[in-house]
């Protein structure tokens, strides 16, 4: 059976599909979160050098990975929207931004919480922390630009261009920050590098990573449904939806 994938590039058909997928993502994510947190916080052994405090790793690293991953996904959708002029891609990019910013914020927050017991300070101008902070600025810029343009079409296209410029700049920023850090010979801490020698640690980490990923998928799909309804509110198919008529 051939599936016409382009069918779901129309907001009207994707709306229904997203509504079917999102609860599954959310449900599986909740199960994985429960399992990952249990293994990470209870089963996994205590770290030899960092004690119990290393366990924040199981939240910190998955959110940090996703914060970067979601920016690339967002820029990818933005590029597709800009090149092929597909409405849905731009809506996906808009829906991804707040979740990406949230993960960036959580990664920074947990990084600070982790820094206090291990380095004795909340914040270090470490290359990774600094580039994560800049990533947060990039997300905020994207959302600020999008929300300050009233015409949704112009907002989509302008924000898309910004996301693409940002994604080209991300590696440059990352390496510049790394070199800056090594030039200044700051206190070199081996952080974020918990020796993952134990199988339970690896399991907990992978479970948490997938849990975060599915959470992001669920929330983004729900958000894109709201965006679709908002943008298409004057169309016939929205008026015929049973949740609208009810």
């Amino acid at each position: 059976m051939a599936i016409n994938w382009f069918k779901y590039s129309a907001p009207s058909t994707f709306y229904g599909l997203a509504g079917k997928i999102a609860p599954w993502c959310a449900g599986i994510s909740a199960v994985l979160f429960a399992a990952g947190l249990y293994i990470g916080l209870v089963v996994a052994p205590t770290d030899a050098t960092q004690g119990e405090s290393y366990r924040i790793f199981f939240i910190h690293v998955p959110t940090a990975i996703l914060s970067m991953f979601l920016y690339l996904v967002m820029a990818g959708y933005a590029a597709i929207g800009l090149i092929f002029n597909t409405r849905l891609s731009a809506m996906m990019a808009t829906a991804l931004a707040p979740t990406g910013a949230l993960f960036t914020f959580i990664a920074l927050w947990t990084g600070a919480l982790w820094g206090k017991p291990t380095w004795g300070t909340w914040w270090v101008w470490d290359a990774r922390l600094t580039s994560e902070l800049i990533l947060l600025f990039l997300y905020i810029g994207f959302m600020a630009l999008h929300s300050s343009i009233d015409d949704p079409r112009r907002a989509d296209r302008a924000a898309a261009l910004l996301a693409i410029v940002g994604s080209v700049n991300v590696p440059i920023i990352y390496y510049s920050v790394r070199w800056w850090n090594s030039l200044h010979q700051g206190p070199t801490f081996e952080v974020g590098r918990v020796a993952v020698y134990d199988d339970t640690m690896r399991q907990a980490f992978l479970l948490m990573l997938f849990a975060c990923w599915l959470y992001a998928a669920a929330v983004v799909l729900w958000r894109v449904r709201s965006i679709i309804l908002e943008r298409e509110r004057s169309t016939q198919w929205v008026a015929e939806l049973k949740e609208i008529r009810a």
């Binding site: 600025f137 600020a144 910004l162 940002g166 440059i172 920023i173 510049s176 070199w179 800056w180 200044h184």
Partner: peptide, 23 residues
């Protein structure tokens, strides 16, 4: 808004420029 968008993108310029003098 323009500062919010442009300043993060200019960070590498700042780092390399100030870094040259520091060096």
């Amino acid at each position: 808004l323009v500062s919010l968008l442009v300043l993060p993108l200019c960070i590498p310029v700042l780092i390399f420029g100030a870094g040259a003098v520091d060096a």
